[in-house]
Design a protein around this nucleic acid. Structure first.
Lengths: 212, 212
DNA sequence: ACCCCTAGTTACTGGACGGTAACATTCATG
DNA sequence: CATGAATGTTACCGTCCAGTAACTAGGGGT
């Protein structure tokens, strides 16, 4: 809490001209608002944070927020889209890191998920949003489902390219394990079963790999 | 309003002796409130429902609610305790259904989880609560962690009794799969990987079973 | 100069929220 | 019948929420 407040206190472009370079380049308000919203949603939950807090954290204000996003639900959807886009980027990075090595990309994805679980045990933003936004037909829900579907499609193709016998089944199993680890990191304490995510995935991959 | 009045009109022990049992016996307000709260929390999320709505759904009122529970957080904790207690009862039922068959109890637990996922795809109340109650040191969190821990302890003992080589590892993997299926039933659409929960668990059990 | 678009500021609305006070009612007991 | 505890009823408090209105301040273009 206090650290977050402290961090926000930095007076922005107080001396004006020098901001030329580096990450200090102030993003336009829309991007700042989305970034702050993703942050706060992750820290306090979607229903646990109000638009005023988001605007303030973005060093902006509520009116500007409402000029860019028609409603809080709108902003939520844009945040989820942004999160999905970042995921796509991670996949592209994995492809670059393991070229022509589909199973390496799959293992890289698992590795990345495991690291993230330990460095920031707050689960998957998309899945968490689905838990919080239970009102029927919430516009975010379709986004979440489609993102998960696209994600699994990619995994299936990688598994197939890797010569897995039943790529759909292995993908389902791996997704269950990873999603389970992400939720357990929130509900099962620091010593929970998420500690064994990689080992469980290895066992599952072995079970579906062609016998050596 | 009027329906509430109508419903309340039943004269209780009007004929004295016969009322021994029957489900028409109105539960005391405290139990009605907890039951209604669990229901509403599940339907609309913990942060999505107010105490007024809970009191009304319980055919009671806010003051009675606050006489029994010091705060909404208090009520949340009692609901989670009740949920944990019901889980314990499920385990006892499984023990009775599969006496001296530890792996049968484990499979029965998986079976029960799978059925529940399809009949009511709203995930695990405990895990969902952990997702929603992110404020640091929320009193519910410790309850959730302890319930999950006790649950896993039971699974480990069953796996060990079944002759599994590494009972802790198999338990971790099975819990990841089941928790993953529960969260995917909310976030991955009706055709999500939760459909393959049982198959994935079978593969995992096979991988950890002594070779036949 | 001019306009115009974007962004920031302040103040506000109406409603829902968690929680409380004061009072009225029921009802099983003595 | 009297008592007292548990329950119900109504009204209220202060706070927070999502969302809006009116106004001001800069910053480029033309």
């Amino acid at each position: 809490m206090s650290s977050a407040l402290m961090r926000k206190t930095q007076t922005p472009s107080h001396d004006g001209v020098t901001t030329a370079e580096s990450e200090n380049t102030r993003l336009p308000p829309r991007d700042r608002i989305i970034a702050s919203a993703i942050d706060l949603f992750r820290q306090q939950g979607i229903k646990g944070v109000g638009v005023d807090a988001i605007a303030e954290a973005a060093d902006s204000n509520k009116m500007t927020l409402y000029r860019h996003f028609g409603s809080k639900d709108d902003l939520i959807c844009e945040c989820l889209k942004k999160t999905s886009a970042r995921r796509e980027q991670i996949w592209r990075d994995l492809e670059a890191a393991h070229p022509n090595d589909p199973i390496g990309q799959v293992r890289g994805w698992i590795e990345e998920a495991a690291e993230r679980i330990f460095s920031d045990p707050r689960g998957c933003d998309l899945a968490n949003a689905a838990v919080e936004l239970r009102e029927a037909n919430h516009p975010a829900l379709q986004l979440i489902i489609e993102a998960k579907k696209a994600h699994m499609e990619r995994l299936i193709n990688l598994c197939r390219a890797a010569g897995i016998k039943q790529p759909e089944q292995l993908t389902d199993a791996l997704v269950l394990l990873v999603e389970g680890a992400r939720v357990c990191s929130q509900s099962a304490g620091i010593e929970g079963p998420q500690q064994q995510l990689k080992r469980a995935c290895d066992a599952m991959i072995a079970a579906y790999s062609p016998d050596s």
